[in-house]
Write a protein that binds this DNA or RNA. Sequence first.
DNA 1: GAGAAGTTGTTATGGCCGTAACAATATTCA
DNA 2: TGAATATTGTTACGGCCATAACAACTTCTC
Lengths: 180, 180
Amino acid sequence: MDSEPGTRPDPGGDTPPDLRYAAYARERLAAMSPPADAEAFALAYHLLQLAYVLVTDLETRIHRPRGLTLPGFRLMFKLWLLGPTQPVRLAEISAMSRSAVTNAVNTLERGGLVERRPVPEDGRAVVVALTEAGEAAVREAFAEQTRREREWFACLGPVEREQMTALLARILRARPADLL
Amino acid sequence: MDSEPGTRPDPGGDTPPDLRYAAYARERLAAMSPPADAEAFALAYHLLQLAYVLVTDLETRIHRPRGLTLPGFRLMFKLWLLGPTQPVRLAEISAMSRSAVTNAVNTLERGGLVERRPVPEDGRAVVVALTEAGEAAVREAFAEQTRREREWFACLGPVEREQMTALLARILRARPADLL
DNA sequence: GAGAAGTTGTTATGGCCGTAACAATATTCA
DNA sequence: TGAATATTGTTACGGCCATAACAACTTCTC
């Protein structure tokens, strides 16, 4: 049905393959018996796909050419704002595991971008701090990343951008309580 | 400033650490000289953070207990809708590399969930197809994932959910042309 | 037809991330 | 005080993903 060109907004023209797939999947799910929740699928799919494509773009276009990675940059950016910080704090802010922080810090430390310092009051603890090279790197990468983000979001108006941020924040705030 | 409790929506109560950090970062960026683009940061941050937290939740709560992974499930789900498909097609739909597909298919094939079949017309090509076990697995996992997604998005009304999906799709459709 | 050029899938290497197990250190509490 | 418990950071292992290089095959072009 509906195979003449121009009948719909563009279900086959220069639409990227991931969006064509999304449209197809939505139809198929709605047509199942019993019909599946095509709206929940579409929201989750577009959210994950956009995040994936955006992450890949920032990584390959901004950070890798500078010898960084996106996760590495994000960690350094936090240190830039927060100052020297314990791994356990970084892990809980980022909602990721302590071992992931250890790995990221290892990589950045090899590159001379951050350093570990012992904490006198607690023999277990360590703080991670930017080196001077790390501070310069994060400042420059931040400028470029912001520029690229603005390109990505230029298709939305200011009100829409705020709406979107607010909706995302609402979901994050209301995240299911049983997250472990 | 503003340190009495209850003055603001909750910049310190039971707000999760990632959102508290986001609010702090936003203030700091706006207070820089010259001020940085705190809005672009906030939008990108909330988008990436939500995607990350959601992915982690679906992975650990739904798929890992079933012996799957989220990327593995997503690939199987595509095969479920599309039928036997070439890796190159899967890669372009998913906007990921062919080698990532190879790896994912290897893992799924080890688990007996998909199989490779040669293509008579093209000696290079292969199609990946669900096995019977794979079809059963994807159907069950899909039901659970949908249930969980509905919990995540229950904090939005139907109109807001559609708004959000539309905004995400708009950004995906307008993605920068020079993505390589 | 035969060689050049392109496509497909794979492998190797390296980074990211999670879980589980561990050693070292702090804290609690009987 | 001293033993049980909790916390911190690390390591080992396996999965995901990208890039680059490669072999096999197809298609284009002369």
